Amino acid sequence: MSRTRPLAPLALAAVLAVVGVVAPAAQAKSYKRVAALTPFTANTLAALGVRPVAIGQTLGGHDRIAASLRGVPTLALSHPNGPNLEQLAVRNPQLVLSAPVWKKGEPGMKRLGMKVAYSDPTSVHDLVGETKKIGALVGKSGAAARLAAQQTAQVRAATKNIRKRPTVLLIMGVGRTSYAMLQNSWGGDIVRRAGGRLLTGGLTASGGYARISDEAVVARNPDVIIAVPHGTAGDIPKIARYLSNKAGWKNTKAARHHKVYVSTGNSLLQAYTDPGTTIRDVRSKFLGN
């Protein structure tokens, strides 16, 4: 009497695959307790129906933070580590959605058993991908895919029918020091998509901000200057007044034609979930195209 030999593991797997019986694929971990340190990550969670355990402070104010996040604890952020670890630990997140600027705080977060993921888009193209990445981390991939499709459609609509493309210098003011925002910065990408021609040729900086003198601003002679004050909330009004009447720029076409604008919000410094709205704002308020 012959004895049936058991199938080898590979042969058994092949048979199971044919009849449709396969081992379930490993599921990616879905994080439920999430801290979001940037406006983009906080608003993305809100749009996906996830309430974070804490959000990071926003220097430009919380006026564009989703209304559904009211009451969520806010963490103060300080260079170079980001949030205070004791305050973060009280919120006990499983996942911290951080930004590269706070990278030095990552080892401390990991020692507390927190996973750290970076998400701080510097272009509209990156934003769409980051939306999907966050969705996967919190178990909301379907909702994130729909949100990303909406963002793409809104940007497409916001960039239609551009009638003119003025030359622009987008300048971040830190105290009395000026930095040109390049195409590889969030604001630079927004202004470019809005129809502005950035006069940043020859300037390079890995972080997207290159120091620029008043003499260089005059030499480049932009049609439009958009100045973005950066500092603590108490310093913003003073920096804004200084930038709006900066004597060193008075010989530019922008100053002569009263096209030096100051943007005191945070939307040109950091990504939010509605880039189409920011592009429309730049077109209507600053470029007139």
Rank of each mutant, 00 (worst) to 15 (best):
L169H: 01
A158N: 03
R165D: 03
Q151S: 06
G175D: 05
V155D: 02
N184M: 07
A149S: 14
A158G: 05
A145G: 14
G175T: 02
P166R: 01
S178F: 13
Q154P: 04
G139W: 01
G173E: 05
K140D: 01
A149Q: 15
P166G: 03
V155G: 01
A153K: 15
I171S: 04
Y179C: 04
K160A: 15
G175C: 03
V168N: 00
A157T: 13
I171F: 14
Y179N: 11
V155H: 01
N184F: 12
S141Q: 10
Q150F: 08
R165A: 12
S141H: 02
Q183M: 07
T152K: 15
Y179Q: 09
A158F: 10
A153N: 12
A143T: 03
K160D: 10
I171N: 03
V174G: 06
Q150C: 10
T152N: 09
G173V: 03
R146A: 14
V174N: 13
K164W: 09
T167P: 02
K140N: 01
R146P: 02
K140Q: 10
G139N: 00
A145I: 07
T152Q: 15
Q151E: 13
K160G: 11
I162T: 09
T159N: 09
A143Y: 03
Q151L: 11
A148T: 07
R156Q: 15
G142K: 04
A180W: 09
A145C: 08
Q154W: 09
Q154L: 14
Q150I: 05
L170P: 00
V174H: 11
Y179D: 06
Q183W: 07
Q150Y: 10
M172S: 11
K164Y: 06
G139F: 04
P166H: 02
Q154R: 13
Q183E: 12
R156Y: 11
A144M: 07
Q154K: 13
M172W: 06
L182K: 03
V138W: 02
S141K: 09
R176V: 05
V168T: 02
L170I: 10
S141R: 07
A180M: 04
R156S: 15
K160F: 09
T159E: 10
R176E: 13
T152V: 12
I171C: 07
G142T: 08
A157S: 12
L169N: 00
M172V: 11
A180E: 04
R146S: 12
G142C: 04
V138C: 00
